[in-house]
Design a protein around this nucleic acid. Structure first.
Lengths: 193, 193
DNA sequence: GCGAGATAGTACCGATCGGTCTCATCTAAC
DNA sequence: GTTAGATGAGACCGATCGGTACTATCTCGC
């Protein structure tokens, strides 16, 4: 049957709903592993609507990743602002991801996963993943600078290695304990910096 | 035409040749992105031979990953043995991967990539990736123990985070500099341990 | 040289892929 | 009420997927 009775006919809400459903299923099962039909079913939308809104599967993937990195950035910036001092602000990032690792269905960083899956094409997913890494570098660099660390860029890059390493291993091992491990590494690095 | 004239008819060599070709193309382009036909072409073998030897694509993937982890383990164990003292032996692992990052066509850790691509199925690739991580933990733990570090298991787990984080980021950014970054982090962690 | 096994080449199978299309039905604005 | 746009359902398309079958040709042990 056509549009669900009683539901608003809101193009923007439809787009958002598709984005949310596609994001969920891509993260859980993988981008290559999921077809448009499955996304349509998960979103409660038709293929027509998906292609009208996003043009192609690649377009949908790009929209999902762009939306994802935007949300993650806002998420981190908000968490950082709620912490007091420089060092606590940095640790707040790792406390935040620790709660993320413990969520049911956690499957790692969507941006890195997409870049890994797309490694044969060198396309938009990898570029967005690089931008995502650079966001973390800039964020850490700013916080380290505020904390009075000399050479904040170098330490910032090290923190990104720890962050993504912990995220990857937590996903592979399905082990939320990587949050605490990452935090311990970061404290050692901050002590030394 | 059938078997190439002048070439030996050696089933074991054929199997090895398929394994090598599949490994190369899987790493470079991704497991899901590559079909059996392409592997057959790359290996200079027919699909019949592939299925006779490996049963299915999943069987081939498992064989490739098993072979891969075996080679990587031997590679690391050999490098470690050539170093002198405990601390140098640990750093030898990171010096080794630094040369790996600098290789043309480097695309990250095949085991983690496979687990990431297969995250929707929870199958053999993820199990092999976990075994691979445990190999690193055991290796580092042994070396740290020999170096007189207290609580070697904890530090070993931290080194694995750094190793896999650097490998992932080096692949995404195509930046061999992650080798030196990882080494610097490890030195800090060893100083603190 | 003869038979057994390994292999290449290729056609083929059903399923699924990304993507297009048609049609009926809904909502929203007037 | 009428109309335009949004949508769902699903048939359809060509391509490709993993996997099988068949045939001809090669090598090797005897």
């Amino acid at each position: 049957m056509p549009v669900k009775a009683g539901e608003r006919l809101d193009p923007e809400a439809t787009k958002t709903r598709i984005l949310a459903a596609a994001s969920d299923v891509f993260i859980r099962r993988g981008i290559h592993a999921v077809g448009i039909n499955e996304i349509a079913e998960a979103a409660g939308a038709s293929k027509l609507t998906i292609y009208k809104n996003f043009g192609s599967k690649d377009g949908l993937v790009e929209a999902v990743l762009t939306d994802r990195t935007r949300r993650v950035r806002a998420w981190h910036e908000q968490a950082v602002e709620q912490a007091e001092t420089g060092r606590d602000r940095i640790l707040a990032v790792f406390d935040l991801v620790a709660t993320w690792y413990a969520e049911a269905g956690f499957r790692g960083c969507a941006m890195m996963n997409a870049a890994t899956e797309d490694r044969g094409r060198d396309g938009t997913p990898r570029q967005l993943a690089q931008d995502h890494l650079n966001f973390y570098r800039d964020l850490f660099s700013r916080l380290l600078s505020e904390a009075g660390v000399r050479d904040p860029e170098t330490t910032a890059r090290q923190l990104v290695v720890v962050l993504e390493g912990a995220t990857l291993i937590s996903a592979v091992d399905r082990d939320p304990g990587l949050g605490a491990e990452a935090r311990a590494i970061v404290e050692t690095l901050l002590d030394a910096a």
